[in-house]
């Protein structure tokens, strides 16, 4: 999981992922184009290699063309591991609060129902 955080820690790499989210299956040329002012093709290639190593980008070959796809599964694993866990505690706290309040409320409802 370290490598996923490392891959996400760079703004260029996050931008590459954003671009692949909008349009999956881009080639290196297509991905390099928007960066051509500030960055060499080799630099983009290096970023892609790290993203691929982190399994955030998956390569699909079509003949001699290499197509890049965003693979959000590792990000999902982070969400499951680090976020859902905390959400669950909050949900538990909320549901405990809810049952405590509803428990306290029940006699009143009953009274109202009886009158």
């Amino acid at each position: 999981m370290d490598i996923v955080f490392k891959a996400l820690a760079d703004p260029t790499r996050r931008e590459i992922l954003d671009r692949l989210y909008k349009q999956g299956g881009q080639t290196l040329n297509e991905l390099s184009e928007p960066f051509s002012q500030d960055m060499s093709r080799q630099a983009v290639m290096k970023h892609l290699a790290l993203l691929e190593k982190a399994n955030l980008v998956v390569i699909v070959w079509s003949g001699r063309e290499k197509h890049h796809h965003l693979n959000p599964v590792p990000i999902h694993a982070i969400q499951d591991r680090w976020i859902r866990k905390f959400e669950r505690h909050r949900m538990d706290a909320l549901s405990a609060l809810k049952s405590a309040l509803e428990g306290a409320d029940k006699p009143n409802l009953k009274k109202r129902g009886n009158s």
């Binding site: 299956g25 998956v58 699909v60 796809h69 693979n71 599964v73």
Partner: peptide, 10 residues
């Protein structure tokens, strides 16, 4: 439209 490709190692 584009294909969706997902990979996980289990």
């Amino acid at each position: 439209d584009q294909d969706y490709v997902y990979v996980t190692y289990i």
